[in-house]
Nucleic acid binder design. Structure first.
Lengths: 144, 144
DNA sequence: ACACAAATATAGCCATGGCTATAACTTGGT
DNA sequence: ACCAAGTTATAGCCATGGCTATATTTGTGT
């Protein structure tokens, strides 16, 4: 089990820390979504990625370039996008974390649709410790 | 009671929504911290703001310029920064929300120092509905 | 009053992540 | 085989939020 999702160093200041988490957020979102698309359609096309992110196609292309630079994805021009081993592993962790947060919020009393929306922003800022607390809370009372 | 913190429209897509929340985050953080500084020292100097944000002084100056453009703060060159009525109101709401989230996390079982760190990133993505759920959870079991 | 230190502003750089417009490539149909 | 349509890439723009280096202003101490 990893102790981090996508960070290199821990900054001293809480604002600096939140900034770092934010920088990783875009990568995490793309990787998770590309994983979803591959699972659904067998491949992830740029156009689909752009549509899911509600972003223009060139913006998606640019972000994918960054994913490639960071070693999370691979692609050949005019072909679909695929995840590296590292990217796939990250996608798995991100997806699990997302589900944990949504389920925790729902269990706490937040309507599921709102929980989904909030989780999208929240998930990138939840530490491993907090995530484990959420998991324990889920197991405790009614892990149906 | 406000139904929003700092948003204009609601985007359809959850990623787009998270992006918007993020755009407001910097403003919210600055406004809250400027409020803190004014309360502590009677004024907020650029140097202090920069130090608290762990950011260079020119970066702080630039962000303050944006706060002014958005009508949240005021300042005269080489003088301290002050909040407009709107800025002060926002600071109050942001501070209350921050405390609610920290206390909720602590009550759930997250160590306080970690709760503080996580809250910094989380708070900008918690909807009004979820916040109210947290508040109710706090009142419910042991509002000591 | 004036010089100097400290604080703030400005200039100019970089990366990210948006966008539109357009070029280049793929693919499917005749 | 080729052309049209669809898809992806590229060019070039903008704002934000980082930074360093430097100019300017404030204010303090002698």
């Amino acid at each position: 089990m990893p102790d981090t999702f996508l960070d290199k160093d821990q900054p001293a200041n809480r604002f600096a820390r939140a900034r770092e988490a934010q920088a990783a957020a875009v990568l995490e979102d793309y990787v998770e979504m590309i994983g979803d698309l591959i699972e659904e359609f067998g491949e992830a096309r740029v156009a689909d990625i752009a549509a899911r992110m509600s972003v223009s196609q060139p913006t998606a292309t640019k972000s994918i370039a960054r994913l490639k630079r960071e070693g999370l994805a691979m692609s050949r021009p005019y072909r679909g996008v695929f995840l590296t081993e590292e990217g796939a592993a990250l996608a798995t962790r991100v997806r699990a974390r997302h589900r944990t947060i949504v389920e925790f919020l729902v269990k706490t009393g937040v309507p599921r649709d709102i929980a989904e929306l909030d989780a999208e922003g929240i998930e990138h800022h939840v530490s491993q410790v907090t995530l484990e607390v959420f998991e324990r809370a889920l197991q405790a009372r009614g892990g149906d």
